[in-house]
Amino acid sequence: MTGTFGGALEARNIPADDGRLVGLAEGEVGLDGKTLVLQRIHVRFELQVDPDADRATIDRVHGFFADRCPVYRSIHPQIHCSTEVTLVEA
């Protein structure tokens, strides 16, 4: 998911390479009968930006990128996936 989000940002001239974009994922496991299954995944993106970064474009890309992400499309809706993005001024 990080690669798809980063690629979509880069396509809009928002730098996401060289460690500027990091994705931190957490999963929640539950029981389905007697079997452990992954039920939820939450990805927190941290993006280093310049003070004059186009935050509206970043928010817009964050709003649609998952629908174009192969990983997201492979696991959703069987596994609930959520994301958030935190901007860190460099």
Results as ranks from 00 to 15, higher is better:
V22G: 03
V61D: 05
G7E: 08
A8G: 08
A11F: 04
T83A: 13
D18H: 14
I79E: 02
E26P: 04
G63E: 06
F65N: 10
K34F: 05
R20F: 10
V85E: 03
G30D: 09
R40F: 01
G27S: 10
I14V: 14
R60E: 13
A90M: 06
V37E: 10
V88K: 13
D50E: 13
T4Q: 06
F64K: 03
S74T: 12
D32G: 08
V49E: 06
V37W: 03
T35C: 08
V37Q: 13
D52I: 06
L87V: 09
N13M: 10
A66Y: 01
N13R: 14
Y72A: 11
L9H: 07
P70H: 07
V37I: 11
E89I: 08
I14F: 02
A90K: 15
T86L: 12
I75H: 04
D52E: 12
H62T: 01
D52H: 09
Q48V: 02
T4I: 11
D50R: 10
D67C: 01
P15D: 06
D67Y: 01
L9A: 03
V43P: 07
I41M: 11
F65S: 08
G3L: 07
V61T: 03
I75L: 14
P77H: 08
V71A: 09
G19E: 01
M1S: 15
R20W: 07
V61W: 01
D59Q: 03
I58V: 11
D59W: 00
A11R: 14
E84H: 00
L21P: 10
P15Y: 02
C69P: 11
L38V: 14
Q39D: 13
A90E: 14
R73T: 13
Q78L: 11
A25E: 07
F64A: 04
F45M: 06
G63A: 05
T4P: 07
L9F: 05
V29E: 07
D67F: 03
V29R: 12
T35N: 14
A66M: 13
E10Y: 02
P15N: 10
E26G: 08
G33W: 07
L38C: 14
V37F: 00
D17M: 04
V88M: 04
A53W: 02
R68S: 15
V22M: 09
T86I: 13
L31N: 11
S82N: 01
D54C: 02
R20D: 08
D52Y: 00
C69A: 05
Q48D: 14
L31T: 03
D17Y: 08
M1V: 11
V88E: 05
V29A: 04
L24C: 02
F45T: 05
A66D: 05
I41C: 02
